[in-house]
Design a protein around this nucleic acid. Structure first.
Lengths: 200, 200
DNA sequence: CTACCATGAATGAATGGGCATTCATTAATA
DNA sequence: TATTAATGAATGCCCATTCATTCATGGTAG
């Protein structure tokens, strides 16, 4: 076989990498193992990726593309900031909760070094936080959200809650649906912890 | 030198490890480098630690001991759940924000594998979440916190926000004080995002 | 008081294994 | 036949870990 190929070889390699890395961790996964699972020769990996680390980053990018794509659609479909926030929470938890192996990559393996984490935070995750920030600003402009909170601060807080729910789900072996938590998350983010004041 | 020693050799090794691992990451830090910075021979490391990984875990345990200790004191000093929550938020951000190198370890390097993360989540972090859960339950019993939220769920959400603030601070090179965010965090957790209803 | 052990800490050079990456060779297409 | 994909054995580096040896100490005996 030659030429024509490319097929979906790159995709096959990525798919294999997700499974292997989820199972053994990035540093204990050998390139040879990934190649074996993908059904290609070791060297072939290097025709599609500069090195092992680039392979890992591509995994995240591929996942993020899907997220961005669906996210844009959902946000366009609703009007109020509150609806948008609800949609983001639901989408985030739905997508992460869809594939446990991939979730292990995004919630654990990708964070193995300051270098990688800083890179992601500057790029893909940074974009995500910006979208969140815009939603908060919109809500404040519409008067539905409190105006005395910094939008970027709130965006990080929201992300923090979602990220922790996702990580917790990955670590728990239970078979709950992660997306099932979306309503509780949204509720908590919107209304906080305090009981309604006595005057109610 | 022999005998007597022990000195604080173990502590010196741990201190050296914090600096080296924060700078180069766990997998790119060699035992030889840690030994060199600690001023001991390579082999000496193995008199105090079973292997490289145990060294990393001890780092976290040492940090956590301090946290638990101060935490217990602070919690005992105040009565209401709301005060306790405020105290935890402040303590968490204060301690993490005190030493950037150590923060890199706790926020990034320790999470490099599912195996390590699961272990921590089951032990040290698990204990922390339990303390948080008790505080939430107390607040609910006292009627100050909403009763329609699952305490363990809230505990994770709170932890998620704190953890994200900490990670964000580590990744940002700015020189802000992390603890400065404590009031905003507490406020957000307590009151949420929604503007007070119109009836105000 | 001095010389001499016995003890266990500390050393650091050497070992061994693991694995990312390369590249000369082969195979498939146009 | 020319071109390019694919192969996978071989290379070479890197380091965690070991362990034979050295060294400092405190106790003991003369």
């Amino acid at each position: 076989m030659a030429r024509k190929s490319n097929d979906n070889k790159q995709q096959r390699i990525l798919d294999a990498a997700v499974v292997e890395i989820a199972q053994h961790g990035y540093y204990h996964t050998t390139v040879a193992r990934i190649a074996a699972r993908a059904g290609v020769a070791d060297g072939t990996i290097y025709l599609y990726f500069k090195n092992k680390e680039e392979l890992l980053l591509r995994l995240f990018e591929r996942a993020m593309e899907r997220f961005s794509h669906e996210g844009r659609e959902r946000l366009a479909a609703v009007a109020t900031a509150r609806e948008k926030l609800t949609g983001i929470v639901d989408l985030h938890l739905s997508l992460v909760g869809e594939d446990r192996d991939l979730a292990i990559i995004t919630q654990v393996e990708l964070r193995h070094s300051l270098h990688v984490l800083a890179h992601l935070s500057r790029t893909l995750v940074g974009d995500y936080l910006e979208v969140l920030t815009r939603v908060i600003e919109q809500g404040q402009a519409e008067g539905e959200f409190r105006r005395d909170l910094e939008p970027t601060f709130v965006a990080k807080a929201v992300f923090g809650v979602l990220d922790e729910m996702a990580t917790d789900w990955v670590l728990s072996r239970r078979n709950t649906r992660l997306a099932g938590r979306a309503p509780a998350v949204t509720d908590f983010l919107l209304s906080g912890l305090l009981a309604p004041s006595d005057s109610d």
